[in-house]
Design a protein around this nucleic acid. Structure first.
Lengths: 223, 223
DNA sequence: ATATATTTTTAGATTTGCCTAAATTTTAAT
DNA sequence: ATTAAAATTTAGGCAAATCTAAAAATATAT
């Protein structure tokens, strides 16, 4: 079955908003999709008749297994295209999302499976998010503290264990935030500090404490 | 300016139908676009207000310079994507058209220019049709007789000078037709005959006469 | 030159996806 | 347990792109 780009965007948004198995509110969806709640209600009725979701009025919405399957396919396309853009066409990792929003609606399944092979069956996109495989299986997010990463590896900041104001201030000062892509340059055994490099900036040093609390999603190749 | 996929398809169809500078008939367009003449009339009125074409009712339609520019951009995208699919993703040259019909509507100009560079600024698509460059300049179609082509080069059958029934019968027998992709394997000086290979078939020999009359569009790399 | 056939346009609907404004339901607060 | 606030849905419309059926213009044939 083939769905419009608009419908696919609804399915994707619900998937992302749907933590665990709670249902998603109309307003939350309207917000995520930059549209009006009334439009969301309209669309939910249509998607319900297509059995992509469970919807009872005033009760919010949940994806059916079929809806989830579709969502995962779209996410697979999105993340593969993002990686293609960064890895093969030299785009910056911050400029690819918008383009992938369009590319993810190209329908050919064969295309996406070939692209997957061309990229060597990658496990994560440029932001460190996992890429579902050909069967829709989503690999666990590969996350670890900066202190655990090998020299010369790279990844994307994805979480901070110590959320104290002091820590956040320090990170802000070093212009590190969620989504910041960094590379491990050198590790000092003496004090456990780590030298990291952010994009075009000069390498900076972070203490063992910071390195242990800064969580990074790392790329990973191979099947 | 950004146009809908539907509008882009109209512009492209008019461009292809518009020989020299004659105007294109409503019915011809409806035919090419697999739609009804009434729908074409509706759309032509819209495209006229956008100054992409000259249209007087009952008088047919012509692209304005602006319309032509848009058409060339779309064709550039289409052909680059086709080549990408064949060259990088191992698609057969006959299965790429349909997918490229979707990909050609992805809007990012930067994407297409990067793709162009990634493919090494190719001059022709897998069917031998010329690819407009970044400025919209369309290289002349690189066409020559099989007899003139170097050994190991390849191309796509694109015309036949001698259109006699006998010639056509012979070509049909060897399953050569417009669009057939072939490779020059060996040339025999003695009699001017040429050994060619078609896709997955065994190599076949064609006489000097045939080789001189079989016109092929050949691929070409580099700026 | 006039009738007939063909092409093209108009008129009026339909579907998709969105909107605003008003009504309804649910939730939260006292 | 009411009432006020917030969330959600309904009702009625709009624009894009299509359609069918009917009308109008152009082309063709004798």
């Amino acid at each position: 079955m083939k769905y419009s780009a608009s419908k696919e965007n609804y399915i994707k948004a619900i998937f992302h908003l749907q933590q665990a198995d709670e249902s998603v509110a109309t307003n939350a969806l309207a917000d995520a999709l930059q549209t009006k709640p009334a439009s969301v209600t309209d669309m939910l009725k249509k998607l319900k008749t297509q059995k992509l979701l469970q919807y009872e009025k005033y009760r919010g919405v949940k994806l059916t297994p079929e809806g989830k399957k579709l969502a995962v396919q779209i996410i697979r396309k999105h993340r593969l295209w993002e990686l293609f853009l960064v890895e093969k066409l030299q785009f910056g990792w911050e400029e690819v999302h918008e383009i992938a929003e369009e590319l993810e609606h190209i329908s050919s399944k064969k295309l996406i499976d070939r692209l997957d092979a061309f990229l060597d069956f990658p496990k994560a996109d440029p932001h460190g998010d996992p890429i579902p495989d050909i069967n829709g299986k989503m690999p666990a997010l590969q996350q670890s503290a900066v202190s655990e990463m090998p020299v010369n590896s790279s990844g994307t900041v994805n979480g901070i264990s110590d959320q104290s104001a002091d820590m956040l201030e320090l990170l802000k000062h070093k212009s590190i935030q969620l989504g910041t892509r960094l590379e491990i340059k050198k590790k000092f055994e003496v004090d456990g500090s780590v030298e990291i490099k952010i994009r075009n900036q000069q390498p900076v040093n972070i203490s063992e404490h910071v390195a242990k609390n800064l969580l990074v999603a790392y790329d990973n190749k191979g099947k």
